[in-house]
């Protein structure tokens, strides 16, 4: 069984478990919708100002909702000592990690896919001006969030206060990816294209993903085994 099949097997297991229980997906989607609704009361949807803050609002919602998904990633392995059974299997820690990150990525993309149309309706926003580029930005930023979140989910899984510790640890690490995602999403929603001046943010997102994916894959064995 090669690395890709092992990764897909772990990811498939996590997604299947989540579809059965819906324990984090329902919470994350509900949370995202509630924040979007509440925030819509605070701003004038006709104002031009909302375009300027659209990226920031969306990525704050995605990052906070994402923490609910990421918290469960390794915590769901604690019941029945399933994490031990996985670590004992011949699957490399890196495949286990990327499988879990891939499942978190899919789940967070579902939250984003549900949230974006609701955002468009509530804030009267044309967010589909360049859907392909917006999707690419969302995928790059979401991968950055999930890779950081998954490794810290493994790190905090045995902590009693993991629900509190995970956000405290991951948000500072995510700042570069969130800054880039906020800027790119804002320009894509307000201008419909990424100006040449802002391409640097796209490069930053790609670099962030590559560096943190490589670092996480290298360190995960130490994180899991100690």
């Amino acid at each position: 069984m090669n690395f890709v099949s092992q990764t897909l097997t772990v990811a498939g297991k996590d997604i299947r478990s989540e579809i059965r229980t819906k324990e984090s997906l329902n919470a994350a989607i509900s949370f995202a919708i509630v924040i979007l609704v509440i925030f819509s009361f605070a701003v004038d949807p006709s104002a031009e100002q909302i375009k300027e803050m659209s990226g920031g609002l969306l990525w704050i919602v995605f990052a906070f909702a994402g923490a609910l998904i990421l918290n469960r990633s390794f915590a769901r392995e604690l019941g029945n000592d399933c994490l031990d059974a996985l670590i004992c299997s011949p699957v490399p820690s890196a495949a286990l990690f990327t499988g879990k990150a891939a499942a978190n990525f899919v789940l967070l993309m579902v939250v984003e896919a549900v949230s974006l149309p609701i955002f468009g309706v509530l804030y009267n926003m044309q967010w589909m001006r360049d859907p392909a580029t917006l999707a690419a930005v969302c995928m790059l930023a979401t991968w950055g969030i999930t890779i950081i979140g998954t490794v810290f989910s493994a790190l905090t899984v045995n902590l009693r206060l993991r629900e509190l510790m995970l956000p405290v640890l991951i948000y500072p690490m995510m700042i570069p990816a969130l800054m880039a995602a906020m800027r790119l999403t804002t320009v894509l929603i307000s201008e419909g294209t990424i100006p040449a001046d802002d391409i640097i943010w796209l490069r930053l997102l790609v670099g962030f993903d590559i560096i943190f994916t490589a670092l996480s894959v290298m360190l995960i064995d130490t994180v899991l085994i100690g």
Partner: peptide, 18 residues
């Protein structure tokens, strides 16, 4: 080596929702 090891610990190591 791990492929040659079977472990039965305190926990049953199977998923409740599967």
């Amino acid at each position: 080596t791990r492929a040659r090891i079977g472990i039965l610990g305190h926990g049953i190591g199977v998923y409740e929702e599967l």
